[in-house]
């Protein structure tokens, strides 16, 4: 089916032009103000001042660390948990639909509303979580109100919110695997877990990669839940790059820093997804 026609361009080009029309100005704007130099006498005012001041700033390095911590743990845990739960769901016979509905229900609740609910649940004084702990005779925890544990619990909320995303995609993927492949595997005496690892997952390799990419990007951009639950505090313990860019852009009127952080995020994500994206494309040749 590799005939030469203009058909594929007909399907793709209009969309690309439409998107470019929307995004070209935001992108130009972002790059311009991030590198703008008002003192420059050259035709193109360009400077790395913003870049330099950011990468040498201790607080920003912490922002980067928090972002990487959150992204790494949230992505990896929810991805593995998503695969595992999809597998469990595939195994069982009774109650499939009820478990599926429960497991993906976090996706259905608006993030602002669920984050507010988490915030009250976390409250050490009147939150339900400490009440439960105390009922079972444990001491209450500090949850998101202590600098040492806040980021961990923010990560847990992110995992809660996005594992359903992984689960849904992977479960749908498992359902597209032809039944005869599974049947021949079980006839060969391979148990279902080995079948998952050695047969199903490799077939779904591309889908898994793309799930991972989107999961990674969402974790990297996590905003609503942090903003509602801790606003970046206590101290700066949960201030990620995106939270910082919000403050610089909307509260402190330093749009050049927001833009620079946006460029960092863009470059990070491009580096991290380029390989996977190309890998997915390779299969088509």
């Amino acid at each position: 089916m590799k005939d030469k026609t203009y058909f594929p361009l007909l399907l793709t080009l209009p969309v690309v032009i439409f998107l470019l029309a929307l995004l070209i100005y935001p992108l130009l704007y972002t790059f311009t103000i991030a590198f703008y130099d008002e003192t420059s006498e050259f035709y193109i005012p360009f400077s790395l001042n913003v870049f330099n001041s950011l990468v040498t700033e201790e607080r920003f390095l912490k922002n980067v660390y928090h972002t990487i911590f959150l992204t790494f743990f949230s992505t990896s845990i929810s991805f593995v948990l998503g695969i595992f739960l999809a597998y469990c769901l595939d195994q069982i016979k009774f109650g499939k639909s009820i478990f599926l509905v429960i497991l993906i229900s976090p996706l259905a609740i608006m993030p602002v509303v669920s984050a507010l609910t988490w915030r009250t649940m976390f409250n050490p004084l009147y939150g339900i979580l400490n009440s439960i702990l105390k009922y079972f005779g444990f001491d209450g925890l500090e949850w998101v109100t202590d600098t040492s544990s806040a980021l961990t619990w923010i990560t847990v909320v992110d995992i809660w919110q996005w594992t359903p995303f992984c689960l849904l995609l992977i479960y749908a993927g498992l359902k597209t695997i032809p039944v005869d492949i599974k049947e021949s595997a079980s006839l060969d005496g391979i148990n279902s877990f080995k079948e998952l690892i050695y047969i199903s997952l490799p077939i779904l390799f591309n889908l898994l990669l793309i799930t991972l990419i989107f999961r990674f990007m969402e974790a990297f951009k996590a905003f609503d839940s942090i903003m509602v639950i801790t606003q970046g505090g206590p101290g700066n313990a949960t201030e990620t790059m995106v939270i910082r860019s919000y403050y610089t852009g909307f509260r402190w009127y330093k749009p050049e820093i927001t833009s620079m952080i946006g460029i960092f995020l863009l470059i990070f994500t491009i580096i991290c997804t380029r390989w996977a994206g190309t890998k997915i494309g390779e299969q088509e040749n």
Partner: peptide
């Protein structure tokens, strides 16, 4: 002054560290 909210945000973070005994 200009940058008021950025100043008080730094103050907030430091005060929280102090309240937590860090």
């Amino acid at each position: 002054t200009p940058g008021f909210f950025e100043r008080v945000d730094i103050f907030r973070a430091e005060m929280q560290e102090a309240i937590l005994g860090n």
